Computed example of a mutant assay.
Amino acid sequence: MLRFGFHLSIAGGCVKAARAAALLGTDCLQIFSGNPRGWKQKPITEPEAGEFRSEVSRAGLNPVVVHAPYLLNLASPDPQLWRRSWLGLAEQFKRAACLGAKAVVAHPGSRGEKSLKWGVRRVAEAVCRAYESSGGQVPCWLENTCGGGSLLGGDLSELAAMLKLIPQGGACLDTAHAWGQGYALDNQVNVAGFLDLVEDVLDFEQVKLWHFNDSKVELGSKRDVHTHLGQGFIGEKGFKALVSDSRLHQASAIMETPKENSLSDKQNLAFIRRLEALAACTPQ
C-alpha cells in the first residue's frame, strides 16, 4: 500500500507539524525547516529537534522530508545567487539531519539564457557542493517542475540528466507539475503511459517520493496551480489509476493541497484512501 502524508505548517514549531500529522493519521510528512521565503533561517535547538524526532517516531511517520526554501536557484547564471543558493541548500541538509529527516526536496531552478546542457551541469554542481559542504548527512531529491521559460526539470529527461551527475540524488515527482509540463494523467491509459516513461527515463529506484496534487490549469499550460484531489483536470480517474498501478504500491505520496479550512486535509486523505480501497477491490 502507498504511504500518504501532507506538507504541514511548522508555525509554532516543527513538533506541532508532527503532532498534526499524527492526529490526521498520516504515514509520512513534509515540512519547511524554517522560513520558506527568506534566506535567514531561525536556528533549530537540540531540545526542539529531539522532541520532533520523538514525536515522529511515536507517530510512525516515514519518510519525513524537508522542502527547501523557494528562494534557492540551483541553476542560476548569477554567481552570487548561485553560491548563496548552494550554501542555502547545504544549510537545509544540516537542518534536515538535525530533525532526523530522510532528505531535502528541492526545485532545480532557472538557467536564464544559458543552454540546457549548461543548466543541467550547474544544478548538479550546486547539489554536490552543498552535499559535500554539509558533511553528506542527507541526500537531495530534485523535484520535477511544470516547465516553461528557462525552468529546469519539467521534462523527465532533464531530471535524469541531472541525477546522472549527482551520486547521492533522487527524484520527487509532482503530479500537478507533470500535468503542467504536458504529461497527461487523467485516465488509466495516460497514467500507464506516464509511468512507463518514468520507468524508461528515470527508473523507479530513483523516484524516492511523489507529490499527489490535482491541477486547476489545463494540460501543458506550464503553470503550477494546485487544487484538491479529484477537483481538477487530473480528476478522480487519474488518481484512481495512480493508486491502482502496482509500480506505486510501495511509494510514499505527499499532498500539497489547499488548506481552506480545518477539514481540507482530512477530506483529501479520505478521498485518496477511498480510491486505494476501491482499486484493491477491482480486478486488474
Rank of each mutant, 00 (worst) to 15 (best):
Met1Gly: 11
Met1Cys: 11
Phe4Thr: 02
Gly5Gln: 03
His7Met: 11
Ser9Asp: 11
Ile10Asn: 01
Lys16Phe: 05
Arg19Gln: 13
Ala22Val: 12
Leu24Tyr: 04
Leu24Ser: 02
Gly25Cys: 04
Thr26Arg: 02
Thr26Trp: 00
Thr26Ala: 05
Thr26Cys: 05
Gln30Lys: 12
Gln30Tyr: 09
Phe32Ala: 09
Phe32Asn: 05
Gly34Leu: 05
Pro36Ala: 03
Pro36Arg: 07
Gln41Glu: 11
Lys42His: 12
Glu46Trp: 09
Glu48Tyr: 05
Ala49Ser: 05
Gly50Cys: 06
Gly50Lys: 02
Arg53His: 12
Arg58Trp: 13
Leu61Asp: 12
Pro63Gln: 14
Pro63Arg: 15
Val66Leu: 09
His67Pro: 04
Leu71Cys: 14
Leu74Ile: 03
Ala75Phe: 00
Ser76Val: 06
Pro77Gln: 01
Arg83Glu: 15
Trp86Lys: 07
Leu87Gln: 15
Leu87Tyr: 15
Ala90Gly: 14
Gln92Trp: 08
Phe93Ile: 11
Phe93Gly: 07
Arg95Leu: 10
Arg95Trp: 09
Leu99Gly: 08
Val105Gly: 09
Val105Glu: 07
Ala106Pro: 05
His107Thr: 03
Pro108Val: 02
Ser110Phe: 01
Ser110Asn: 07
Gly112Glu: 00
Ser115Phe: 00
Ser115Asn: 02
Lys117Tyr: 04
Arg122Lys: 11
Arg122Thr: 00
Glu125Asn: 04
Glu125Lys: 01
Ala126Met: 03
Ala130Gln: 11
Glu132Thr: 12
Glu132Tyr: 12
Glu132Ala: 14
Ser134Glu: 06
Gln137Ser: 15
Val138Gln: 03
Pro139Trp: 06
Asn144Ala: 08
Asn144Gly: 08
Thr145Asn: 06
Gly147Tyr: 01
Ser150Ile: 01
Gly153Asn: 01
Gly154Leu: 00
Ser157Asn: 09
Leu159Ser: 00
Leu159Cys: 03
Ala160Trp: 02
Met162Pro: 01
Lys164Asp: 11
Gln168Met: 11
Ala171Val: 09
Trp179Tyr: 06
Gly180Gln: 10
Gln181Ile: 01
Gly182Pro: 05
Gly182Ser: 04
Gly182Ile: 06
Ala184Gly: 04
Asn187Arg: 14
Gln188Thr: 14
Val191Ala: 03
Val191Cys: 01
Gly193Lys: 04
Leu197Thr: 09
Val198Glu: 04
Glu199Met: 13
Asp203Cys: 13
Asp203Trp: 13
Val207Phe: 07
Leu209Thr: 13
His211Glu: 10
Phe212Cys: 07
Asn213Gly: 10
Asp214Arg: 09
Val217Gly: 08
Val217Asn: 13
Val217Thr: 12
Val217Gln: 13
Glu218Met: 12
Leu219His: 06
Leu219Met: 09
Leu219Cys: 10
Leu219Phe: 14
Ser221Asp: 06
Ser221Ile: 03
Val225Asn: 12
Thr227Gln: 08
Gly230His: 10
Ile234Trp: 09
Ile234Ala: 07
Gly235Arg: 10
Glu236Cys: 11
Phe239Ser: 02
Lys240Asn: 14
Ser244Leu: 12
Arg247Cys: 02
His249Tyr: 07
Thr257Arg: 08
Thr257Val: 13
Lys259Ile: 11
Lys259Asn: 10
Leu263Glu: 14
Ser264Ala: 15
Asp265Glu: 15
Asn268Pro: 02
Leu269Glu: 03
Ala270Glu: 10
Arg273Val: 05
Ala277Met: 15
Ala277Glu: 15
Leu278Ala: 15
Ala280Arg: 15
Pro283Thr: 13
Gln284Tyr: 14
